[in-house]
Simulated assay, not measured.
Amino acid sequence: MIEQRLSELGITLPKAAAPVASYVPVVVSNGLAYVSGQLPFIGGNLVTGRLGDDISTERGMEAARACALMILAQLKAADIALDNVERIVKLGAFVNCTNDFADQPKVANGASDVMFEIFGDAGRHARAAVGVPALPLHAVVEVDAVIALKE
């Protein structure tokens, strides 16, 4: 059903990215999938830069959306069927930005909105949107997730 929804939306999930350090992309415990922070790849290229400096809010939103799609790709790579997602519980969005940039919530909406598009009400979630001075590999945004799975 979710695969059909992705097709209807014209969404193709990316290939799951390999970890860039000593961690695993997904851990499942007590019915929850904890997905490590995912970086934004668009067209196979990592989106780098800083909001408030050389990246627009709109590009930041696109990057956050790419992170959300990578979260779903990581679930699939961990052999978790997307139809087994009961609810997106929480997203954490980390935005590489200047000290005076204050639109982190708008940037994070790129990830939040695509989860709602794909999962409907089950895609509505709690969230944090935090500005940070730097991210791994100079990524513009990083998003992690907690996802409830059906039993």
Rank of each mutant, 00 (worst) to 15 (best):
D100I: 14
M1P: 15
V85G: 04
L9C: 03
V141R: 01
F41G: 07
D54F: 13
K150G: 08
K76R: 15
M70Q: 14
R50K: 14
D121H: 13
A17F: 10
A93R: 00
E8Q: 12
G44F: 03
H125F: 08
Q4T: 09
G60A: 10
R127K: 04
T57M: 05
V95W: 07
L75D: 11
I147E: 00
E3M: 08
D121R: 05
R127V: 09
L91G: 03
C97S: 07
A108F: 12
R5G: 01
G110S: 03
T12A: 13
V28H: 09
F101D: 05
D113T: 12
S36L: 08
I118C: 01
G31W: 14
L72T: 02
L82Q: 05
S36W: 13
A139F: 05
L69H: 01
E8G: 05
L69E: 00
K76D: 03
I71D: 03
I147Y: 07
V146K: 06
D79H: 11
R87A: 05
E86S: 04
N109R: 14
L39C: 05
K90I: 02
E58L: 06
L82R: 07
T98G: 13
G49C: 06
I88W: 14
F119P: 07
S7H: 09
N96M: 11
G49R: 12
D53F: 12
Q38S: 11
S112C: 06
A21P: 08
H138T: 13
L6A: 03
N84E: 07
K15T: 10
V20I: 15
R59K: 12
P14A: 03
M1H: 09
L149A: 01
F101G: 04
V47M: 10
Q104A: 06
A102Y: 13
G44C: 05
L9D: 03
F101T: 08
M61S: 02
A93W: 00
A73W: 10
L137P: 00
P136I: 08
R127L: 08
D100T: 15
R50Y: 05
R5I: 06
L69P: 04
D54I: 11
K150N: 10
V146A: 08
N96S: 12
V95G: 00
D121K: 07
E3P: 04
V143C: 00
V132P: 04
A17K: 14
N30T: 14
A122P: 15
